[in-house]
C-alpha cells in the first residue's frame, strides 16, 4: 500500500463519515499525510493533537502492534491531516478550561462525576495536569474548593 501510494481507501473512510454524520466524525486514529507522501494513522492520539505533529521538533514514534511495526516521524517533518476541500480538517473545541488545573489549549476528557448528569472536563494528560497543580494552577473543581464547600 505504501510503495504503491494507494491511499484512496483512507478518503473512503472520511467520505463515509460525512455521508453518515454530516461531518468527519473520526476523532482519533485520524489519518495524516507525512511529507506529502506517506499516509499514517497516528492512533491513539486524538485528532486534537494532529496539528502539533506538523514540523514538530520531537522525534515521534508510533507502535503498530498488529502490523508488528514501528512508525517513526523524523523531527521537523510536514504532517498534514487528510480532509476534503469542502469539509476541512477541524480539531475539537472546548468551551471551558480544565476543571482541575484551568489549562486551556489542551485535550480534555469528559469525566462523569455522579449519577445525576454531573460531569467535568479534565486534562487528558494527567501527568501534565498534576505538574500544573503542583505549580499552583487551580481549576474551578479542584480539590481545595471541594474541601471548602464541605
Amino acid at each position: 500500500m505504501h510503495a504503491l501510494e494507494e491511499y484512496g481507501l483512507m478518503h473512503v473512510k472520511l467520505y463515509e463519515d460525512i455521508a453518515g454524520h454530516g461531518r468527519i466524525a473520526t476523532t482519533y486514529a485520524y489519518p495524516v499525510k507525512v511529507e506529502g507522501r506517506y499516509v499514517m494513522d497516528p492512533s491513539p492520539t486524538p485528532k486534537f493533537d494532529n496539528p502539533k505533529m506538523h514540523m514538530s521538533p520531537a522525534l515521534q514514534l508510533f507502535g503498530a502492534g498488529r502490523e508488528m511495526r514501528i512508525y517513526a516521524v523524523p523531527p521537523f517533518t510536514e504532517v498534514v491531516s487528510l480532509d476534503f476541500e469542502d469539509h476541512p480538517f477541524e480539531i475539537q473545541h472546548f468551551t471551558q478550561p480544565c476543571a482541575l488545573c484551568a489549562a486551556t489549549g489542551v485535550y480534555l476528557d469528559e469525566v462523569i462525576s455522579d449519577d445525576h448528569g454531573g460531569h467535568m472536563f479534565v486534562c487528558s494528560d494527567t501527568d501534565n495536569c498534576e505538574e500544573r497543580r503542583a505549580e499552583g494552577h487551580r481549576g474551578h473543581l479542584s480539590g481545595e474548593e471541594l474541601e471548602a464547600a464541605e
Binding site: 494507494e6 473512503v12 467520505y15 460525512i18 469542502d86
Partner: peptide
C-alpha cells in the same frame, strides 16, 4: 466493497486519483 456505501463505492476511484471535494464526489 460490500461494507461501504454505494456512494463511496463509486467515489473511491475519484478519491484515489486525487479528488478532494466531497460535494463534487
Amino acid at each position: 466493497r460490500m461494507t461501504v456505501s454505494a456512494g463511496a463505492n463509486v467515489g473511491e476511484r475519484l478519491m484515489a486519483v486525487g479528488d478532494r471535494h466531497y460535494g463534487h464526489i
